[in-house]
Design a protein around this nucleic acid. Structure first.
Lengths: 133, 133
DNA sequence: ATTTGACCTGGAGTGCACTCCAGGTCGTAC
DNA sequence: GTACGACCTGGAGTGCACTCCAGGTCAAAT
């Protein structure tokens, strides 16, 4: 199967402009073209796009995605480096999750404070309170 | 206690330029000044900075932090709205954690693939594999 | 035959969150 | 008394990741 750029955008969740942009900066192999010169994305293209959008969700900068994409073009010899990039990214995602958990605790604490203020009309103004207990 | 801008930067983890920038865009009340006109941050200023940096860690855009900061200046009457902002942000953090968890699973799957490729020198090239099992 | 709509290109513009700079003022150290 | 370092101001510049635009091509629909 092959897909128009509009269809590829719909399926990947990226905008048409972003697809062309990713191609320009070599995140994406230039897809095939139809007889009229329009892009025709393959299933493989869409799989790669799917993975790219996951990497993006992890917060990986485009620079690193480009490195990964470039290694991919260099075949199996680059597998070790590619794996290393993913392992590193895995760590950074795990760290980020821990960081966000910490933020969640602080938000919960602050929200609980506001709830206390709601229950009794007096008390310490929330903006005066420290962050930690 | 009061702190020079360098000390406030050190304690908040923000740069000196960022502190002045935050003041310019009204994330921060202009701190007191010493006799020479230099900024003198109070403990309260630092507490607020601490909370701001936590909000920043959650990915809250500056626009929203400014709204929160502005509400804070409008006193206790704005507590309801402030709480709502925090509750909303709490949700977005929880969503983001879930999203990152999903990414972690995909990374683990991909990494496991690379490990399989390492164990046997042949097999499907990793770049040909789908993302999901 | 022309209108429409999806697509094409190269390049310019946007929003965000800083970050840097030039030129100037203080207070202390020598 | 001057050299130094930390600070000040207004404003310009940066890096990132898009996003938009003008002007053009092409195939199908009216």
């Amino acid at each position: 199967m092959s897909y128009s750029i509009a269809e590829a955008a719909r399926r990947s969740g990226l905008s048409i402009d972003t697809l062309r942009y990713y191609e320009r900066i070599k995140l994406l192999e230039p897809p095939a073209r139809d007889s009229a010169g329009r892009r025709a994305y393959s299933d493989e293209d869409l799989n790669w796009l799917g993975f790219l959008t996951k990497l993006r969700l992890t917060g990986m900068p485009i620079k690193s995605m480009r490195e990964y994409a470039s290694l991919r073009r260099h075949g199996v010899a680059s597998a070790g480096r590619r794996k290393a990039i993913l392992v590193e990214q895995r760590q950074s995602v795990a760290d980020r999750i821990a960081e966000l958990q910490g933020c969640l605790d602080i938000l919960d604490y602050k929200i609980a404070n506001y709830e206390q203020v709601e229950r009794k009309a007096f008390g310490v103004a929330p903006e005066m309170e420290g962050i930690s207990a």
